[in-house]
Every structure is written in C-alpha cells, then in structure tokens.
Amino acid sequence: MKVNLQVWRQEGPEAAGAFKTYEVDKISEEMSFLEMLDILNEQLVNKGEEPIAFDHDCREGICGTCGVMINGQPHGPQLGTATCQLHMRKFDDGATLVVEPWRATGFPLVRDLIVDRSAFDRIIEGGGYISVDTGSAPDANLTPIPKMVADTAFDAAACIGCGACVAACPNGAANLFTAAKISHLNLLPQGQAERWSRTENMVEIMEEYFGSCTNHGECEKACPKSISIDFIAMMNSDYVKAKFKNRRLVAQS
C-alpha cells in the first residue's frame, strides 16, 4: 500500500517549523506505523536528507516513549493503542496522514516530532511515591488488600507516561496523568500516610505546567491504556479533602 504523509519538521525549539510532504510507497499492511517511518527515514538518508526525529523505544506499547498526533488524534485512530502498536492495516491505501508532535506549553518541542515531557517527572517528584526506605518494609502479606482495590490501583498504575492525555486535552491539562498516579497510591493502604500531602503537592505542581480539566473526556480516549477519567474525579475529591483535613487526626478516620 501507499500513504501520503505530511510530517512536521522543525530543527529545534527556536527554529521555524512546517509540514513537509512525503510519499511512502510499497509498504505492507503488517507494518507498524513506526516501521513505516523507519522506511521513510531510510529513503531520506539515501536521498541525503536528514531523517525525521521521533521518540520511540520498546515498540511494545509499554515504555511510553513514542507518541505523535496522527490526523489530529494522539497515537492515531485506534483507541487504547500506542503509536508503536498501531499498524498500517488501520489506514486505507492512498490515505493522507498528518503527523504532528504533541503540543502543549508544558511539553516544549525538542526537534521534529520530539517533545520534552520532563514536567511529568516534576509532578512525580512532588509525591508520586510512598516513602519507604529500602529495607524498612514489613512482610508483603502483612496487610491484605481486597482484590478489587488492588485491581483498581493497577488500572490507575497502568499509566505509561506518554503524554497523550495532555496532547489530546483541548486545555493542555495533565489531570489524567496526575490523577492516575495519585489514585494508584491513594487507593492502597500503604499510600494512606502521605495521601493528603501527596494529593495537594502533585496537583499544585501539575498546575504550574499544565492547563485545567474541563471534563471533555478526550484524554481517556487518547490514553493507550484507556485509563478512566473516574480517577480524575477521585483526585478532585481527595484534593478538597486534603485542604480540609485536620492532618493531626487523620489516623482516626
């Protein structure tokens, strides 16, 4: 099959960027989208043109490195699928694909399709952990956790940190990312000690970089792990509680 690509090319954060049109011919339906870009890059190198820079690594949909806008959708048209797991069979022969980087002020562009997502690390630094020094943990089976709770915590913990939620959000908000991490830890008994400070800090750091949630639900659809916006509601609920709680007394509740 054959596709026409319009790919965003930009040499650096300060350089001007523009779409460039490429035609990629003789590709197979079994090929992944990134493999199609590999082929295009190979052709570009042979022509003496610099290859397109794009982030990718595991190509199994778990590391969260890859991610581009394809026809106005983060990670392309297949729901619950990262760019690296998207296959060309999902497109029509002869289709035109517009490929753009994530755009958000919190994700400054590095080059071509690559953006800097380190703001996510700053959010995690704010409390996306349970403070337990190595060696100080009690036996793992000391605290039984209902299966349903553990499963729900996992649903939230499945986040791969790719940034598609921010890319999809009309407001450039990172609420799904932040809520997923907060909910994962706040749901578990181990996470209770730092629940309120974690929620407060992470939300406030998030807001230094990103926009606000207006409940479009676009992030959930863009998420390669289909993480539910129910977690955003959980975060909102915990945030107000974090502001109200008399933290000297939390152990009583």
């Binding site: 952990y129 190595t134 793992a140 553990a150 915590a153 913990a157 994962h184 578990l188």
Partner: peptide, 11 residues
C-alpha cells in the same frame, strides 16, 4: 519492598 512501595501485585 515492592509491596510497601505500592506495586499492585496480583492478589
């Protein structure tokens, strides 16, 4: 250690 960190192992 992992459980204390909040790793959601299957239960």
């Amino acid at each position: 250690q992992a459980t204390a960190q909040g790793v959601p192992f299957a239960r």
